[in-house]
């Protein structure tokens, strides 16, 4: 059972880029915010607005990924896959990758890319041809 502080951290925004959801994680993510994000992404894929073909999670600004966040990321990808969307984890820092392997958490189900452009290419979208993003509040 994880306790939550009285002032809950702000939800992570989920941006729309064509039929791609783009999520940028920054710094230290609270457990509650990570679980909220998992719910928000799954809900957006299932209930719209608009079809979602892929999810890109930019983790280049994330200092550490522990087994909790690793599990949440793997579950986001698993949920998305069951809802016919593909997930790509973009920009994992080298120190974080080294630590994850030593921790024993190699996240075999996650597709990774070196950066967001690479992630979009892996989803079959050319970044330059993509329409501009529309920032929207997390559901």
């Amino acid at each position: 059972m994880t306790g939550f502080s009285a002032a809950r951290p702000a939800p992570v925004p989920v941006l729309t880029l064509g039929d791609i959801l783009l999520v940028t994680l920054q710094g230290d993510l609270h457990d509650g915010a990570a679980e909220q994000l998992q719910h928000d992404i799954t809900h957006r894929i299932a209930a719209g607005p608009g079809p979602v073909g892929g999810v890109v999670i930019d983790v280049s600004g994330v200092d550490i990924v522990d087994s909790f966040l690793g599990r949440v990321l793997a579950e986001i990808a698993a949920n998305a896959r069951l809802l016919a969307a593909r997930t790509v984890l973009a920009g994992l820092r080298p120190a974080v990758a080294i630590t994850l392997v030593e921790l024993g958490l190699t996240l075999p189900g996650l597709v990774t890319a070196l950066n967001v452009d690479d992630a979009l290419a892996r989803l079959g979208r050319t970044p330059s041809a993509a329409p501009p993003s529309h920032p929207e509040e997390g559901a």
């Binding site: 522990d66 909790f68 120190a95 921790l103």
Partner: peptide, 14 residues
């Protein structure tokens, strides 16, 4: 160093 920091902070989190 950065890798050591990342490992120690990750262990701390667990």
């Amino acid at each position: 160093n950065l890798v050591q920091q990342t490992k120690l902070v990750t262990a701390t989190s667990e």
